[in-house]
Protein backbone atom coordinates (compact mmCIF):
# COMPACT_ATOMS: atom_id res chain seq x y z
CA UNK A 1 0.00 0.00 0.00
CA UNK A 2 1.33 3.44 -0.91
CA UNK A 3 1.02 5.91 1.94
CA UNK A 4 1.63 9.66 1.99
CA UNK A 5 2.73 10.71 5.47
CA UNK A 6 2.72 14.46 6.18
CA UNK A 7 4.53 15.42 9.40
CA UNK A 8 6.67 18.51 9.92
CA UNK A 9 8.71 17.15 12.82
CA UNK A 10 11.46 14.89 11.37
CA UNK A 11 11.94 13.27 14.79
CA UNK A 12 8.40 11.95 14.59
CA UNK A 13 8.31 11.40 10.84
CA UNK A 14 11.29 9.08 10.66
CA UNK A 15 10.21 6.33 13.10
CA UNK A 16 6.68 6.36 11.71
CA UNK A 17 8.02 5.98 8.21
CA UNK A 18 10.24 3.09 9.28
CA UNK A 19 7.43 1.35 11.16
CA UNK A 20 5.04 1.63 8.22
CA UNK A 21 7.70 0.50 5.73
CA UNK A 22 8.49 -2.49 7.89
CA UNK A 23 4.85 -3.49 7.61
CA UNK A 24 5.22 -3.66 3.85
CA UNK A 25 3.95 -0.22 2.92
CA UNK A 26 5.68 2.24 0.66
CA UNK A 27 5.73 5.50 2.55
CA UNK A 28 6.42 8.94 1.09
CA UNK A 29 7.18 11.28 3.98
CA UNK A 30 6.87 15.04 3.45
CA UNK A 31 7.00 17.97 5.85
CA UNK A 32 4.46 20.43 4.47
CA UNK A 33 1.07 20.68 2.84
CA UNK A 34 2.26 22.17 -0.47
CA UNK A 35 4.57 19.25 -1.22
CA UNK A 36 1.87 16.83 -0.16
CA UNK A 37 -0.59 18.50 -2.51
CA UNK A 38 1.87 18.30 -5.38
CA UNK A 39 2.64 14.63 -4.72
CA UNK A 40 -1.07 13.83 -4.56
CA UNK A 41 -1.27 15.05 -8.13
CA UNK A 42 1.77 13.00 -9.21
CA UNK A 43 0.96 9.62 -7.70
CA UNK A 44 -1.94 7.51 -6.55
CA UNK A 45 -1.96 6.96 -2.82
CA UNK A 46 -3.94 4.37 -0.93
CA UNK A 47 -3.77 6.26 2.35
CA UNK A 48 -3.01 9.74 3.63
CA UNK A 49 -1.69 10.27 7.18
CA UNK A 50 -1.82 13.94 8.18
CA UNK A 51 -0.50 15.88 11.13
CA UNK A 52 -2.83 18.74 12.16
CA UNK A 53 -0.29 21.41 13.02
CA UNK A 54 1.73 21.95 9.86
CA UNK A 55 3.53 25.11 8.76
CA UNK A 56 1.42 27.38 6.53
CA UNK A 57 -1.47 25.06 5.68
CA UNK A 58 -2.85 22.96 8.52
CA UNK A 59 -3.57 19.27 8.03
CA UNK A 60 -7.29 19.85 8.57
CA UNK A 61 -7.40 22.57 5.91
CA UNK A 62 -5.49 20.32 3.53
CA UNK A 63 -7.90 17.47 4.18
CA UNK A 64 -10.88 19.74 3.68
CA UNK A 65 -9.63 21.17 0.39
CA UNK A 66 -8.73 17.70 -0.92
CA UNK A 67 -12.22 16.47 -0.08
CA UNK A 68 -13.72 19.53 -1.72
CA UNK A 69 -11.65 18.75 -4.83
CA UNK A 70 -13.18 15.28 -4.90
CA UNK A 71 -10.18 13.32 -3.62
CA UNK A 72 -11.53 10.21 -1.86
CA UNK A 73 -8.25 8.76 -0.57
CA UNK A 74 -8.72 7.40 2.98
CA UNK A 75 -7.24 9.89 5.43
CA UNK A 76 -6.03 9.49 8.99
CA UNK A 77 -5.42 12.52 11.22
CA UNK A 78 -2.53 12.05 13.63
CA UNK A 79 -2.35 14.98 16.05
CA UNK A 80 -1.59 16.19 19.54
CA UNK A 81 -5.00 17.85 19.76
CA UNK A 82 -7.07 15.68 22.06
CA UNK A 83 -10.30 17.45 22.92
CA UNK A 84 -13.65 16.15 21.76
CA UNK A 85 -14.22 19.39 19.85
CA UNK A 86 -10.93 18.90 17.98
CA UNK A 87 -11.84 15.35 17.09
CA UNK A 88 -15.22 16.47 15.79
CA UNK A 89 -13.59 19.25 13.73
CA UNK A 90 -11.04 16.84 12.29
CA UNK A 91 -13.54 14.16 11.36
CA UNK A 92 -15.97 16.71 9.96
CA UNK A 93 -13.19 18.09 7.78
CA UNK A 94 -13.24 14.74 5.98
CA UNK A 95 -10.80 12.57 7.89
CA UNK A 96 -11.70 8.88 8.12
CA UNK A 97 -9.89 8.30 11.39
CA UNK A 98 -8.38 10.33 14.21
CA UNK A 99 -5.49 9.36 16.45
CA UNK A 100 -4.05 11.39 19.32
CA UNK A 101 -0.27 11.57 19.74
CA UNK A 102 1.65 9.93 21.19
CA UNK A 103 0.20 6.93 19.44
CA UNK A 104 1.07 3.33 20.09
CA UNK A 105 2.54 2.03 16.81
CA UNK A 106 0.70 -1.28 17.03
CA UNK A 107 -2.55 0.69 17.20
CA UNK A 108 -1.51 2.90 14.28
CA UNK A 109 -0.70 -0.14 12.13
CA UNK A 110 -4.01 -1.75 13.04
CA UNK A 111 -5.85 1.43 12.06
CA UNK A 112 -3.98 1.53 8.77
CA UNK A 113 -5.03 -2.07 8.06
CA UNK A 114 -8.62 -1.18 8.98
CA UNK A 115 -8.60 1.81 6.64
CA UNK A 116 -7.23 -0.35 3.82
CA UNK A 117 -10.17 -2.72 4.28
CA UNK A 118 -12.56 0.20 3.95
CA UNK A 119 -11.01 1.30 0.66
CA UNK A 120 -13.22 0.81 -2.43
CA UNK A 121 -10.26 -0.93 -4.11
CA UNK A 122 -9.95 -3.54 -1.36
CA UNK A 123 -10.04 -7.07 -2.67
CA UNK A 124 -9.40 -9.00 0.50
CA UNK A 125 -6.47 -9.47 2.82
CA UNK A 126 -4.69 -11.81 0.44
CA UNK A 127 -3.58 -12.07 -3.16
CA UNK A 128 -3.74 -15.42 -4.93
CA UNK A 129 -2.28 -16.50 -8.23
CA UNK A 130 -2.43 -20.18 -9.14
CA UNK A 131 -1.26 -21.89 -5.91
CA UNK A 132 0.76 -18.94 -4.73
CA UNK A 133 -0.87 -16.91 -2.01
CA UNK A 134 0.33 -13.66 -0.38
CA UNK A 135 -1.08 -12.59 3.01
CA UNK A 136 -1.11 -8.78 3.02
CA UNK A 137 -1.54 -8.41 6.82
CA UNK A 138 1.24 -10.72 7.87
CA UNK A 139 3.55 -10.43 4.81
CA UNK A 140 3.57 -14.21 4.55
CA UNK A 141 3.74 -16.08 1.33
CA UNK A 142 2.06 -19.47 1.12
CA UNK A 143 2.89 -22.14 -1.41
CA UNK A 144 1.38 -25.58 -1.12
CA UNK A 145 2.10 -26.60 2.50
CA UNK A 146 4.83 -24.05 3.07
CA UNK A 147 4.32 -20.67 4.73
CA UNK A 148 7.09 -18.13 4.78
CA UNK A 149 7.45 -14.56 6.04
CA UNK A 150 8.98 -12.13 3.57
CA UNK A 151 11.08 -9.10 4.38
CA UNK A 152 9.24 -5.84 3.70
CA UNK A 153 11.28 -5.12 0.55
CA UNK A 154 10.58 -8.56 -0.96
CA UNK A 155 6.96 -8.31 0.09
CA UNK A 156 6.53 -4.91 -1.62
CA UNK A 157 7.95 -6.23 -4.91
CA UNK A 158 5.96 -9.45 -4.83
CA UNK A 159 2.74 -7.61 -3.99
CA UNK A 160 3.32 -5.22 -6.89
CA UNK A 161 4.01 -8.06 -9.32
CA UNK A 162 1.09 -10.18 -8.12
CA UNK A 163 -1.21 -7.20 -8.63
CA UNK A 164 -0.02 -6.91 -12.24
CA UNK A 165 0.37 -10.54 -13.42
CA UNK A 166 1.27 -11.41 -17.02
CA UNK A 167 2.13 -7.82 -17.78
CA UNK A 168 5.49 -6.49 -18.80
CA UNK A 169 6.71 -4.24 -16.02
CA UNK A 170 9.54 -1.90 -17.05
CA UNK A 171 12.42 -0.91 -14.79
CA UNK A 172 10.96 2.57 -14.59
CA UNK A 173 7.53 1.35 -13.59
CA UNK A 174 8.99 -0.77 -10.81
CA UNK A 175 11.13 2.12 -9.61
CA UNK A 176 8.16 4.47 -9.59
CA UNK A 177 6.02 2.01 -7.71
CA UNK A 178 8.43 0.78 -5.08
CA UNK A 179 10.86 3.53 -4.30
CA UNK A 180 9.95 6.17 -1.82
CA UNK A 181 9.75 9.73 -3.00
CA UNK A 182 13.11 11.46 -2.74
CA UNK A 183 15.21 8.31 -2.68
CA UNK A 184 17.41 7.69 -5.73
CA UNK A 185 17.68 4.02 -6.73
CA UNK A 186 21.08 2.96 -7.98
CA UNK A 187 21.31 1.86 -11.60
CA UNK A 188 21.01 -1.85 -10.84
CA UNK A 189 18.80 -1.59 -7.78
CA UNK A 190 15.69 -3.03 -9.46
CA UNK A 191 17.68 -5.94 -10.83
CA UNK A 192 19.16 -6.58 -7.38
CA UNK A 193 15.73 -6.66 -5.73
CA UNK A 194 14.30 -8.96 -8.38
CA UNK A 195 17.27 -11.25 -7.96
CA UNK A 196 16.70 -11.38 -4.18
CA UNK A 197 12.99 -12.14 -4.56
CA UNK A 198 13.72 -14.88 -7.08
CA UNK A 199 16.18 -16.33 -4.55
CA UNK A 200 13.55 -16.24 -1.76
CA UNK A 201 10.91 -17.87 -3.95
CA UNK A 202 13.29 -20.51 -5.14
CA UNK A 203 13.88 -21.47 -1.49
CA UNK A 204 10.24 -22.61 -1.22
CA UNK A 205 10.19 -24.19 -4.64
CA UNK A 206 8.59 -21.45 -6.65
CA UNK A 207 10.77 -21.23 -9.72
CA UNK A 208 10.72 -19.33 -12.96
CA UNK A 209 7.73 -17.16 -12.15
CA UNK A 210 9.59 -13.94 -12.80
CA UNK A 211 10.71 -13.77 -16.40
CA UNK A 212 13.26 -11.28 -17.66
CA UNK A 213 12.35 -9.43 -20.84
CA UNK A 214 15.71 -8.38 -22.11
CA UNK A 215 16.23 -4.63 -22.39
CA UNK A 216 12.68 -3.86 -21.11
CA UNK A 217 11.89 -5.30 -17.72
CA UNK A 218 10.14 -8.26 -16.14
CA UNK A 219 6.95 -10.25 -16.40
CA UNK A 220 5.31 -12.15 -13.50
CA UNK A 221 3.63 -15.24 -14.77
CA UNK A 222 2.93 -18.68 -13.29
CA UNK A 223 4.67 -21.29 -15.49
CA UNK A 224 2.36 -23.27 -17.74
CA UNK A 225 1.74 -26.65 -16.23
CA UNK A 226 3.63 -29.29 -18.10
Amino acid sequence: MRILLVEDDPEQLEPLQIALSRSGHIVDGVADGATARWLMGEKNYDLLILDWMLPEESGVDLCQSLRAAGVATPTLLLTAKDTIADKVTGLDAGADDYLVKPVDLTELLARVRALRRRSPLWTGDRLKLADLCLQLDTMRVEWKEISFKLSSKDFQLLEYMMRHPRKILTHDQIEQALWEWGSEPESNAVAARVRRLRQRLREIGVEDWIKSIYGVGYCFEPPKSP
Binding site: Q12, P15, L16, A19, A80, K101, P102, L105, T106
Partner: peptide
Protein backbone atom coordinates in the same frame (compact mmCIF):
# COMPACT_ATOMS: atom_id res chain seq x y z
CA UNK B 1 5.57 15.91 20.11
CA UNK B 2 8.70 14.69 21.95
CA UNK B 3 6.67 11.99 23.71
CA UNK B 4 5.38 10.82 20.34
CA UNK B 5 8.93 10.73 18.95
CA UNK B 6 10.24 8.81 21.99
CA UNK B 7 7.39 6.32 21.89
CA UNK B 8 7.62 5.60 18.17
CA UNK B 9 11.40 5.35 18.28
CA UNK B 10 11.22 2.89 21.15
CA UNK B 11 8.57 0.85 19.40
CA UNK B 12 10.50 0.85 16.12
Amino acid sequence: APLAAVLSNAQV
